[in-house]
Computed example of a mutant assay.
Amino acid sequence: MTLFRGSGVALITPFDSNGINYEKLEELIYWHIERKTDAIIICGTTGETPTMTKDEKKKIIKFTVDKVKGRIPVIAGTGSNNTKETVDLSKHAQKVGADGLLLVTPYYNKTTQRGLIQHYRFIADRVDIPIVLYNVPGRTGLNMLPETVAELAKHPNIQGLKEASGDISQVAEIGRLCPEDFDIYSGNDDQIVPILSLGGKGVISVVANILPEETHNLVISYLDGEVIKSRDLQLSLNGLINSLFIETNPIPIKEAMNILGMEVGEVRLPLVKMETINRNILIDNLEELGLSTGRE
């Protein structure tokens, strides 16, 4: 069963001086549903989960599920480098009604490929909702090999992969080794079309935080056979996408949202406000797409 086709937004977490700004979060959730976002990923990398407490994660997952009310899938990022803690948070997400789980490869302790298989199977045996694996070696220091993905794809609860290695040849090998009903999602906004061309079902996206409809259209156009339209959308967005990663995500996307008047608050330490020179590059790319930045 495919969790979603199209654009899943890796939603930012709006913070204020009191913690998570739930009023703003509710506003963002409704805005995304209205603007064709196909799924909401809460507590992902872009949501700054390394700076959140376990209680904050549990509360924000339940809040998001309650506000979405089944209109689109909610996928909860519950992965960590602590297998038992991942199970605990994953069970909570299932209990409060999340539609699926996004589980990043264990970071810092850098297990072996055999360890990855045991880690994911241990979790998958203890939940009953779909799991999307998340491979992002630039963050974790660990690359999940295609053969490992193929072995994990045999488990009935492991139904997809967010692939953010940046290695298109690796994506092709995953597509070759895994069954056709195993869903691959781009984890890099600048590689959506290449991954769709290899059988991908969509993207878990950063840029969708500000351009949800455009990101949805990019994917759905390709899936509907309008390849040239999809390609042109990809190329038109790539300048902005590049500037959204000119500093560590989610620093630039939060800055972009604030520039556009969305008032989502600042990043939490150890992340810091964007450098002025990079902020100006970001503004230039927003303006190239006709977005109003308030700059004279």
Rank of each mutant, 00 (worst) to 15 (best):
F63D: 03
V267N: 05
T140N: 02
K110M: 06
V267M: 04
N258G: 06
E48M: 08
L291C: 10
I42E: 10
N238V: 13
W31P: 03
F63P: 01
L211Y: 01
C43R: 07
I228K: 14
E296D: 14
E23I: 06
V219C: 14
G19F: 00
E26Y: 05
P130D: 10
R114K: 13
D125R: 06
G175T: 12
S236F: 01
R71K: 15
Y185F: 13
V264K: 03
R126V: 03
T293A: 08
G77D: 10
D55C: 07
I20R: 02
P250C: 03
D190E: 13
G100Y: 07
I283A: 12
R295S: 11
V227K: 12
E23D: 11
Y30W: 09
V149F: 09
V193E: 04
V267S: 01
L89C: 03
I259G: 07
V136T: 02
Q191W: 07
C178W: 01
L11G: 06
E266R: 14
I246M: 14
Y134T: 00
R121Y: 10
L116R: 00
F245Y: 15
N21W: 00
G202H: 07
H92Y: 05
K229A: 13
M274T: 09
N249V: 14
T49C: 09
N188H: 15
F245A: 14
F182D: 04
G44Y: 03
S165W: 01
T78Q: 04
G8H: 04
P270K: 07
I228P: 06
H92R: 04
L271W: 00
I241P: 12
T51V: 10
P156W: 13
N135Y: 00
T105E: 01
T293H: 11
E26H: 06
S243D: 15
N258S: 10
L223S: 11
D88A: 04
Y134I: 01
D190Y: 15
D125G: 05
L233N: 06
D55F: 07
N188C: 14
D88F: 09
L161I: 09
L198M: 14
V227F: 14
D38L: 09
T215D: 07
P137H: 02
N238A: 13
K162G: 00
F122V: 00
A172M: 12
R231S: 14
C178Y: 00
H92E: 04
V272A: 14
D189G: 01
D128C: 10
L3Y: 11
N81M: 07
P250Y: 08
P14F: 00
L28S: 02
C178F: 04
I228M: 11
T13N: 06
S221N: 15
K67Q: 11
E214C: 09
T86Y: 01
V207Y: 03
G79R: 01
K59C: 02
S197F: 08
S7N: 10
P50Y: 10
P73D: 12
I20A: 03
S165H: 06
I123W: 02
A153H: 07
G290N: 08
K59G: 02
K110E: 11
G200N: 11
T78L: 02
K67H: 13
G202W: 09
E56N: 03
D38M: 10
F245S: 14
S7I: 13
H32I: 02
E26P: 04
M52C: 09
N249Y: 13
Y22A: 01
A150Q: 13
N249R: 13
G47P: 13
V9F: 06
D190K: 11
